[in-house]
Amino acid sequence: MKKTVTVSLGGLVFCLEEDAYIKLDGYLKRLEAGFSNEPDRREIMNDIEARIAEHFREAAPKPDDVINLAQVDRVVGIMGDPTDLGAEQKEYKATSGRPFNSTGKRLYRDPENSIIAGVSSGLSYYWNIDPVIIRILFVITALWGGGGFFVYVILWIVIPEARTAAERLEMTGEPVTAENIGKTFQGSANQRK
């Protein structure tokens, strides 16, 4: 048994299973965020929602049909990931100026596993060592002369936070593909629960 969520999409009403709804909601939000540099992003989103509604209507023609996760996944595959759509382009350019290290990672602060600002967790991905070791070093140097404190604050200011799924993948060194971005997104959706 599963809970369902009723939504209005492109002027039609659909009933979605809860996990399907979370996936779709996240997808639409990422898409809209990706179009943040388009002046008419609301219009683009309305058109895309109308098209998704057409796909759903085909998959679930009867009024009491329920849309499941597999159907949402199929439609997301047809519509394409924000990074494929030339959306997120601006964000992407902003990050692409910075170098990757030898293992193909880029330095970010990690907001999802942070104690303070995610500096240690971000460094631990970059150097592939346990964040606890970095945290201990920061604490020791902070207590012993205070250097660690200032270094931490400077790193906090200088290192950008990994905000988008693509940036998280760059931080962990995984290839930035549609599938991985989906996985990252689902990971953070689960964490929020």
Partner: peptide
């Protein structure tokens, strides 16, 4: 109509993911 446009482009394998079309049309 947008869906006809998509179908034609897809038949000719010009369009891989449908979402590409919408920002372009609006622009």
């Amino acid at each position: 109509y947008t869906t006809d446009l998509i179908n034609q482009l897809k038949n000719e394998e010009m369009l891989v993911v449908e979402g590409t079309l919408y920002p372009l049309l609006t622009r």
